[in-house]
Simulated scan of single mutants.
Amino acid sequence: MSQATLPVFQLPEITRPRRLPGRVAGLYRTMEDGFVTTAVDRLDLGFDGIEGDRHGGFTRLSGGREPWYDRGTEMRNERQISLLSPDELAGVAEGLKIAELRPEWIGGNLLVEGIAQLSLLPPRTLVFFENGVTLKVDGDNGPCRFAGRSIAEHAGGGIDVELGFVKLAKKRRGLVAWVEKPGTIVAGEGFEAHLPEQWIYPG
């Protein structure tokens, strides 16, 4: 009897895991029902995110980002925390021809320094903070007209800024993450982002 041979399995090119250091440059949270956040010295995080924050909670209701569900369907909240980069915000502001783009205007929670092209960090990246908090990145945060409208209201520019933000902020609008290990993050705290192995699915 001839022994059956298995087809040769060839792995795609795999990028090894990496670790990148960074620092918390600013912390923000919503104080009321609105979208805009307010600067704070610390964030107390539970498994449901920032207690009382607009984007906190174990679950959330689906919206335009989830067309596969009826709008308003309850689902897992993977968008508890919004991370932003000052470099990316400055680049978008320059493209919009406005003096600045503040994290508060687009509902940011963490402004972080030290990681180039923050918005391109891959899903499953773990962010380990010095005081013990761990966040798990879900992915990049797609820009929307709602955030663009908030920028226009604060910086001026009207509809050109509102629509321009959606175009110019693609892959530069930061990340969304959820709390894997709760605790407290303070301003100025260091962290280390652990990027997983990465590959392009070949199938």
Results as ranks from 00 to 15, higher is better:
residue 46 G to I: 09
residue 91 G to L: 04
residue 75 M to C: 03
residue 39 A to L: 05
residue 34 G to A: 13
residue 76 R to I: 15
residue 125 T to D: 00
residue 114 G to F: 10
residue 83 L to A: 00
residue 101 L to H: 07
residue 41 D to C: 02
residue 126 L to V: 05
residue 76 R to V: 15
residue 57 G to V: 13
residue 89 L to P: 01
residue 110 L to Y: 06
residue 47 F to E: 04
residue 137 V to R: 02
residue 50 I to R: 03
residue 109 N to K: 10
residue 82 S to V: 15
residue 98 I to L: 08
residue 88 E to A: 04
residue 130 E to P: 04
residue 68 W to R: 14
residue 101 L to G: 01
residue 104 E to M: 07
residue 29 R to I: 11
residue 92 V to D: 06
residue 62 S to G: 06
residue 47 F to P: 02
residue 123 P to D: 04
residue 84 L to Q: 12
residue 133 V to M: 00
residue 106 I to P: 02
residue 31 M to G: 15
residue 107 G to K: 07
residue 35 F to W: 03
residue 114 G to C: 11
residue 65 R to C: 00
residue 78 E to A: 12
residue 72 G to V: 13
residue 88 E to F: 07
residue 76 R to Y: 14
residue 84 L to T: 14
residue 66 E to S: 02
residue 80 Q to Y: 13
residue 79 R to V: 08
residue 92 V to I: 15
residue 35 F to E: 00
residue 50 I to W: 07
residue 57 G to A: 07
residue 44 D to T: 10
residue 121 L to D: 01
residue 96 L to C: 05
residue 99 A to P: 04
residue 122 P to E: 09
residue 41 D to H: 04
residue 35 F to N: 01
residue 32 E to K: 15
residue 86 P to D: 03
residue 38 T to G: 00
residue 69 Y to K: 01
residue 93 A to Q: 04
residue 65 R to Q: 07
residue 86 P to Q: 08
residue 87 D to A: 14
residue 121 L to N: 00
residue 46 G to E: 03
residue 86 P to S: 06
residue 105 W to L: 04
residue 45 L to A: 04
residue 86 P to L: 02
residue 81 I to E: 04
residue 81 I to S: 05
residue 124 R to F: 13
residue 66 E to V: 09
residue 100 E to S: 12
residue 29 R to N: 05
residue 97 K to N: 11
residue 86 P to R: 06
residue 69 Y to I: 02
residue 49 G to N: 05
residue 92 V to E: 05
residue 102 R to A: 14
residue 34 G to Y: 10
residue 79 R to E: 15
residue 81 I to A: 09
residue 61 L to E: 13
residue 42 R to S: 13
residue 117 Q to Y: 10
residue 131 N to R: 15
residue 128 F to W: 11
residue 130 E to M: 07
residue 85 S to L: 10
residue 86 P to T: 11
